[in-house]
Design a protein around this nucleic acid. Structure first.
Lengths: 295, 295
DNA sequence: CGGTTAGTTGACGCTCTTCAATTCCGGTGG
DNA sequence: CCACCGGAATTGAAGAGCGTCAACTAACCG
C-alpha cells in the first residue's frame, strides 16, 4: 500500500483500456508497465492494485486508477463505462438474439454465457463470461445482436451503451485500438474452442475447458491451481462442448477415476494439475498475450 | 458507367474502410449509401462499381474510389494499405504460428485458409479467405501469431504492416472503428463455424460451409446461386468440418445423390439451392450486416 | 509409361447419442 | 418432523454416426 508514487504517468492508455475490457490483462499490463518504471512480480502487483488514488465508482476503474494517473478526459471517458450499474437474476436473458439496439456489459460479479440456438432447438454455447469480461460487444457493433447471452448466476454488471463506445473512440482514439485488441482476444478464445470441438476427444475437450476456466479465473482472483468454484451444470458443459449431457457425466466420471480432475457440487478440483494439462494439450498461449502492440 | 456524378461525398469513412477489409461489405455499403443519395439494386451497384474516377494501384481501392471522393489524408491512408503488393505460390505459409512481427494481408486474388495444428499433428481449419478478405489481423495485434495461414492457390495480396494499421488509426480514428467492426464480423463467422461443429450433422455442416462460401463469393463476383469455382480439396473440407477425408467423400456423395449440391473437379454446383438452404438451416444473417453503427 | 496426388468404396469397430430408469438433493408445504 | 416435488446427476443398454484401415481408380505431370 502506498509504496509506489501515485504520480506515475504511462502514455500508453491502450493497455489500460484493454485491462478494462479484460481484467485478466491487468497482470500482463503490469508486467509491461514494469519495463522501465517498476519491477513487479505477480504478488507484488496484486497488493499494488489495492492502492486507491482516485475516487471511482467501480472495482475495475479503481484497480486501473491505482497504477496509472489518467488525464482528465481519459478518466471521464473511463468513468462513462461504469455509470450504469445493473443487476440481473440468474437465468435472465441479458442479450437477445435478433433484437436491435442492445447494450454491452462489463461483468462485475457472476457468470454468464453467450450462445446460439439452432432452428431445431439445440443450443451451442460459444463462451462463458466471468467477472471482468466484456460481453455483447458484437451486439452493439452490429445493428442487431447475432447471439444471445444468459446469466448463469445472479449478475452485477456495468451497462455500456453504443454511444459510450463511439464517443469514447472519438475522445480517446487509443481506446479503439485497445478495444480492437480485446475483441481479437475474444476471437482467439473462440478459435481455440473451435479447435476443441473439431479435433479433440470428449475427454480432452472437457479437460481443456476446465483448465481454461481455471486459468481465466485465476487472473481475476477467483481460483488457483487447486481448483475453482464453478456454478455451471453438466448441461452447460454439454452445450459448450458439443456433447450430450449424459456423455458429459460419463466423461467427468472418467476424468475423476483417472485422478485428473473432480467436478462436484459447484466446485472443480484439479487432482493432478500437471498431468491434466499434459492430457489436454493445454497451452495458455492464447490467454497469455503480452498486451497490445505498442510503439 | 458514369451515370452517377463522381463528386458525391459521404462523410462516413467508416463504411469505406470496412469495405477495404471486407469487400463483401461493398454491397451493404452501397445499400446504406443509397439511403439518401442513390437507390441502387445489387446489379446496378455492380456496374456502378466499375466506374473508375481516381487512378489507383489496387483493384480494391479502385472499387472504393469509384463511389466516394476521399479527402487527401484519407486517400493517402488507404493507399498505404496497398503499397506493398506481393505474390505467393500455392502451399506457401503466409503466416506462421508462433512467429513474431508477422504482417497482415488483404487478399486480391486466390484462396487461403487459417488453421491451427495440434500437438498430435491434426489440423483444424478455422476459416477460408477469399479475395477481398483481410487475413492475419490478430497476428499483428498480438505480438506473436496465434495461428497459421496457408495459400490454397497462387495468391496476390497487399501486405499490411503493423505500422500501417496503427499510423492509420491515429491519422483517421474512424479507421479503427471500421477495422474493429470488420474483426467482429470475422468473429461472427468463426462463431457460426463453432455452432456448425458443435451441433450439426456432417451433412448439414458440409451444406452450410458450401453455402457460406457461395454467399461470400457472390459478394465479390466469384459465383452465383448456380454455383462457384472452388479450389479446395476434400482434405481441406475435412479439416474445416472436423471430419475425416473419407467421410467427407461419403457426405458429398450423399448430398449429390439427394440432388442438393455437387462438388466435382473444382466446381461446386447448387443442384437445388432452396432445398439445400433449408436442409442446412442456412441463415445469411451473420454475413448480411448492414454496416457499422453510424451516428 | 511410371509416379504422385486426389478421390472412391467396403468392412469393421469405436465414440458418442438416445432412451429410459434411478438416485440424489435442496426446497416447500403440511 | 416427514412427504412431496423438481431439477440435476447417474447409470445401463442399444444403436447410429463417424473414424480407421485398406484397397482401388482417376487425373495429372513429367
Amino acid at each position: 500500500m502506498g509504496q509506489v508514487a501515485p504520480t506515475i504517468r504511462w502514455p500508453e492508455l491502450v493497455a489500460i483500456i484493454g485491462a478494462i475490457c479484460y481484467t485478466r490483462l491487468i497482470q500482463s499490463s503490469v508486467r509491461h508497465f514494469s519495463f522501465g518504471y517498476l519491477t513487479l512480480g505477480t504478488t507484488r502487483c496484486r497488493s499494488f492494485l489495492k492502492v486507491d488514488i482516485l475516487p471511482a465508482n467501480s472495482p475495475l476503474t479503481r484497480k486501473l486508477s491505482a497504477f496509472v494517473t489518467l488525464s482528465d478526459v481519459d478518466v471521464e471517458t473511463l468513468a462513462r463505462f461504469h455509470q450504469r450499474r445493473r443487476t440481473f437474476l440468474s437465468g435472465h436473458e441479458m442479450i437477445n438474439h435478433g433484437e436491435r439496439n442492445q447494450s454491452a456489459f462489463i461483468l462485475a460479479k457472476g457468470w454468464a454465457f453467450s450462445y446460439k440456438i439452432l432452428p431445431n432447438g439445440e443450443r451451442q454455447i460459444v463462451d462463458f463470461q466471468i467477472p471482468g469480461d466484456f460481453l455483447g460487444l458484437r451486439s452493439i457493433l452490429f445493428r442487431t445482436a447475432d447471439h444471445s447471452v444468459e446469466a448463469v448466476t445472479d449478475i452485477e454488471a456495468s451497462e455500456v451503451l453504443a454511444s459510450d463506445i463511439f464517443d469514447g473512440f472519438s475522445r480517446a482514439p487509443r481506446l479503439a485500438t485497445a478495444v480492437l485488441w480485446a475483441a481479437s482476444r475474444d476471437e482467439a478464445m473462440v478459435v481455440e474452442h473451435l479447435v476443441n470441438l473439431g479435433r479433440r476427444s470428449a475427454e480432452e475437450r472437457m479437460a481443456h475447458l476446465l483448465l481454461e476456466l481455471g486459468a481465466r479465473l485465476k487472473l481475476v482472483g477467483g481460483g488457483d491451481r487447486t481448483g475453482f468454484d464453478c456454478p455451471l451444470t453438466q448441461y452447460h458443459l454439454a452445450d459448450a462442448l458439443g456433447l450430450s449431457a449424459v456423455h458429459v457425466n460419463r466423461v467427468l466420471r472418467l476424468l475423476r477415476e483417472e485422478g485428473l480432475v473432480t467436478f462436484r457440487k459447484g466446485r472443480v478440483v484439479f487432482d493432478n494439475f500437471e498431468r491434466l494439462k499434459e492430457f489436454a494439450c493445454f497451452d495458455t498461449e492464447y490467454l497469455d498475450q503480452e498486451g497490445p502492440l505498442l510503439r
